[in-house]
Amino acid sequence: MKTLLVFEYRRGKLTEANLELFSFAAALGAQTAGVLIGAETLLPAYPGKLYLGDIVKCKDYNPEVHADIIMQAAQKEDPDYIVFIHSSYGWDLAPRVAARLKAAQVSEITGVSEGKFETGCCNGKMRRLVRPATTKAVLTIQEGAFCFTGEAEGTPAVEKLEPSADGAGLEFAGYEEPEKREVDLAKAEVIVSAGRGIGKKENVPAIAELAKSLKGELGASRPVVDAGWVDHNRQVGATGQIVSPKLYVACGISGAIQHLTGMRNSEFIVAVNKDKEAPISEVADVMVIADVMPFVAALTEKLKQ
């Protein structure tokens, strides 16, 4: 069995998640080759074949040109699986490669079982086991599901590829840096976060007060930030801040994967939710099944005593 691993080069860096591609290939027991659209001076460490496209020539990031390079590598390697990380790069690019190959795509894989792939659904509450019905398949794996514990070492044997597509329908016009944050949640020892389950904007001050009583900072999940209840400075998650405080209290947060990615490394997690099955229970040390606001009020009061 052969896999072609698609490494991600994001704004001048190789992402850490790239290492998880090796763990995934190991879980499959597959031989690996890789493809990278990046820079010759920054290569992933492994002792195999690496197809390399130049990030500048591939119009960093024009997906049609990137897909063309990956297809060239796929034609040379003839892999059973082409594997991406399920990131803004992977979920954008994988369906384009699958379409060119007329192959199955399985998104956001969390596990492997005898040629079938486990993937989350229903907002993380359920799982599906999916079998590709085509001879080749394109896969994206969930970041954090295949943790890499070994040492990355070795020097790949590089073969350079030149783009044969111009991707004319689309022009990449550059990156915008994240806005400067006034609150550095990464340094907080305690974070109390508000999720949609708090019900309304008027309930945010009570969550902030609990945070204050615990000498911590207010955090928030993405929907609460999108709704304008809490400033985006305080968003915890893959697209916000990645945090690991000593205590994380999640108030009315169901636990979408993008939020879990941002807080799962917290030392002690208390989650308050009405729904016992909410995916936040996967990471919570204590799951409090209750109406959020009465519990928050009671805990704040106890802390003040």
């Binding site: 699958a98 007329k102 192959a103 199955a104 795509q105 399985v106 079938k116 989350g120 659904c121 509450k125 359920m126 799982r127 599906r128 086991l129 999916v130 079998r131 590709p132 019905a133 085509t134 398949a137 997690i269 989650a271 099955e277 229970s281 996967e282 990471v283 919570a284 040390d285 204590v286 799951m287």
Partner: peptide, 17 residues
């Protein structure tokens, strides 16, 4: 191109109280 073979609750990973 892809077939769902099984739909199920996740194995409870959470060991929380």
């Amino acid at each position: 191109r892809a077939v769902t073979e099984k739909f199920y609750h996740p194995v409870k990973k959470g060991t929380g109280l």
